[in-house]
Amino acid sequence: MNRRDSIKALGLAAAGGALLLDSCSPKEAKQGATAVGDKLPGVTDSEHERNTKLAEERFFTTHELATIGVLADIIIPADETSGSATDAGVPEFIEFMAKDIPTYQTPMRGGLKWLDVQCQRRYGQVFMQCDNTQQLQMVDEIAYPAKAKPEMAQGVAFFNLLRNLTASGFFTSEMGVKDIGYVGNKPGVWDGVPADVLDAHGFKSAWG
């Protein structure tokens, strides 16, 4: 079989010169982690049962999930290139991960509570009820590990975890993959670093 036959065997259809996988058309792609959907071929029955069961359970309360949404959009806001974390379904993804990796549960629940207690002391209300300026003041205290005050250390640890989960969730969503510019996962031919890139980096040939 040559490469052309390989691509045919994959069930790929040519569409305007671009090759798209039938099974992965944007229409069918699901946003958000709660949509576990149909079992993919190659996923085992027990894996699929576990995924479905986790998706049906609820860990975070409505208040916690709403707070996660506000924080996630502070971490990844919409800009001219793409939408925000909540646009990409990040809170639903974090909800799933808290059940998938139970060691996240206490740091997340406790971290959210820590944040609300801090805000209650400073501003007389929980984080969600604070105005935007107050929310950002609070986040500024925990978003910069190197300059955060020692008494903020627990908040820093919580924010580090939430930042990683938010970025993971956003940049692995369909919107985020497009934003970050990953253009692979397509059948083709790899013939080494493109000539203009070789030039720009001072390499003389494809083998350096």
Partner: peptide
């Protein structure tokens, strides 16, 4: 030919390919 999770996108895994179940991630064979 039938069971590979080749060419799947990260959002086709609810854990985005995390290694919770399979040590090298959801798409690993």
């Amino acid at each position: 030919a039938k069971d590979a999770l080749q060419m799947r996108w990260p959002w086709e895994s609810p854990r985005r390919g995390a290694s919770t179940i399979r040590p090298f991630g959801d798409f690993d064979a």
